[in-house]
């Protein structure tokens, strides 16, 4: 539960007072609605169990919702929170405490990975159960039942908005973490032969990634006792002075560890930008393309690339 609260807390930061007010405005919740809901309070409280059951009974039909049903304590929490929800729903107060309760429940749904579509289905079953009861309260006066239902539906949509935000925020958090992971994977260091590493850099090179890259490269040089590194920056669209400086320092550090860095694939546009900025590229060992870079690397390593009739063979110079 501890991390439950941590999550809820994180989402709560997004629901400031002005946000609660705005949410009420979005669903057009008026004093008349609150008065209409007040008329329903007693009747709905008398049928609490049936309404709670409408929600969980719906979910129980679907094996996809087993994440909730297989964890008894979470299920109990969810039932308790749902009961409290229904009590609050007809309570007439839709401020921050109300929203906080919704957020806590949303955090629980998120924890059991409740499918958004299933949540919507269950919530619909719940509102149907309530609306049926409302209509039955004023037999022979359809318009009255309809108006009351309409007021209650505003709260229903108010609730859905909050739960959606919680579920989406959690998903975004997951995506951010995955992006981090992909970022790390996308600057691999490959050993192509003894003492020779290739580091292909694709995509955006920002300061964060530049730092990762330095660390990854220096570790790889140590682990492989590399003598030459070919750093391929084909596809890197923009390099500013800070990132350029970072790369130059990394190259200098590699040099101190006994490895020479050859940079390949520097685009004409990036080179022009760096020169215009005034970045000193004279210490950069740049070679046009990756193939050229590898040939240069092999030369530095004391190998020679020899074309024979059958294949490209490589043999030591001496």
């Amino acid at each position: 539960m501890a991390d439950d609260y941590a999550r809820a807390e994180r989402h709560l930061r997004d629901v400031a007072e002005y946000d609660v007010e705005r949410r009420r405005r979005y669903v057009d919740l008026q004093p008349i609605d609150i008065a209409q809901i007040g008329e329903l309070r007693e009747a709905i409280l008398n049928h609490l169990d049936a309404h709670v059951e409408a929600f969980f009974g719906y979910l129980a039909q679907y094996p996809e919702a087993s994440g909730l049903f297989s964890r008894r304590n979470l299920l109990e929490d969810a039932r308790r929170l749902k009961r409290e929800h229904l009590i609050a729903m007809v309570g007439g107060e839709y401020g921050r405490p109300y929203v906080e309760q919704r957020v806590a429940l949303g955090a629980l749904y998120s924890k059991v990975r409740l499918d958004i579509r299933l949540f919507l289905g269950a919530f619909q079953a719940l509102s149907r159960s309530i609306v049926n009861q409302i209509m039955a309260l004023s037999p022979g006066d359809g318009p009255k039942g309809f108006q009351r239902s309409e007021s209650l539906m505003k709260i229903v949509f108010f609730d859905i908005g909050i739960i959606m935000d919680v579920l989406i925020a959690d998903r975004e958090q997951t995506i951010t973490l995955q992006q981090e992971a992909i970022r790390e994977l996308s600057t691999p260091t490959l050993q192509v032969r003894d003492r020779l590493l290739i580091m292909p850099i694709i995509g955006v090179l920002d300061t964060h990634r530049a730092r990762q890259l330095t660390e990854g490269l220096l570790n790889a040089i140590r682990a492989n006792r590399a003598k030459v590194v070919v750093m391929d920056v084909t596809g890197v669209a923009t390099v500013d002075s800070k990132v350029a400086n970072h790369l130059l320092q990394t190259i200098a550090a590699a040099g101190l560890m006994g490895a020479e860095v050859i940079v390949t694939g520097l685009s004409a546009e990036v080179a022009q930008s760096l020169v215009t900025l005034g970045v000193d590229l004279t210490k950069l060992n740049a070679v046009g393309d990756l193939q050229g870079g590898l040939e240069e690397a092999e030369r530095l390593l004391g190998y020679e690339v020899v074309k024979t009739r059958v294949q490209v063979a490589r043999r030591p110079l001496d």
């Binding site: 669209a237 923009t238 500013d240 002075s241 546009e269 022009q272 930008s273 760096l274 215009t276």
Partner: peptide
């Protein structure tokens, strides 16, 4: 077009930084 796009992007990067 062309290299101008990279020059602009680089200048933006500097002032944003």
């Amino acid at each position: 077009s062309g290299s101008d796009l990279t020059l602009i992007a680089t200048a933006i990067s500097e002032v944003a930084r």
